[in-house]
Simulated assay, not measured.
Amino acid sequence: MAEPSPKHDVFQAIADPTRRRLLRLLDDQEMPVTVISGHFPMTRTAVSKHLRILADAGLVKEKKVGRETRYRLDPEPLLELKRWLAYYERYWENKLGALKRYVESEADS
């Protein structure tokens, strides 16, 4: 059976700077919300709401350990973002190439 589609997409989830910071914090370790919230100037409830959006987009996974819930990064959904950005890289490369040719031609003048 296929997994249900996420409630939030990756683009919506990473649009917020706090959520991007959360992803970076959870990059290499699993943490409970009590520890995570100590890294942010907001309430634990606010951090939990951000974590819920990330979880709904599939970017963080939750695991119950005793009475606490621990969170960890799941980078798999970021591949969608990487593929989307890769398409537009050709425009950046074209522009940078044109700039390089222009600068070099001005230097030769």
Rank of each mutant, 00 (worst) to 15 (best):
S109D: 11
R52W: 04
L22I: 10
G66E: 14
R101D: 14
R90Q: 13
A13R: 00
R67D: 14
K61A: 07
D28R: 07
T18M: 02
R20D: 14
D108Q: 05
K64A: 12
M1W: 14
E93L: 13
W84M: 01
E89Y: 11
L96I: 12
L23T: 13
E93R: 09
I53M: 03
S105E: 15
L51I: 09
V47R: 01
K95W: 09
E104I: 01
S48H: 05
R52S: 03
A57E: 06
Q29E: 15
A57K: 03
A57Q: 05
W84T: 08
L78R: 06
P4W: 05
E89A: 07
T18I: 05
I36M: 08
R21I: 07
V65T: 11
G38C: 08
E3D: 12
T18D: 00
E93V: 09
F40M: 07
P77Q: 13
D56F: 03
L25M: 13
K61L: 10
N94F: 09
A98K: 11
R90S: 12
D9E: 09
D27V: 01
P75I: 12
W92Y: 08
E106I: 15
E80R: 04
S37Q: 04
T45F: 10
A15S: 15
E80G: 11
R24S: 14
R24W: 09
L99T: 14
D28Y: 02
L25H: 11
K49Y: 09
T18N: 00
P32E: 08
F40H: 02
L54C: 02
D56L: 05
M31V: 01
L54I: 01
P41D: 10
R101H: 10
P32S: 10
T45S: 15
Q12E: 13
L96G: 03
K64D: 06
A107G: 06
L59Y: 03
D56R: 02
H50D: 10
Q12I: 06
L23N: 04
D16I: 02
V33N: 09
A46T: 15
R44V: 06
Y88E: 09
V60Q: 04
G97D: 12
R70K: 15
R72L: 11
L59Q: 08
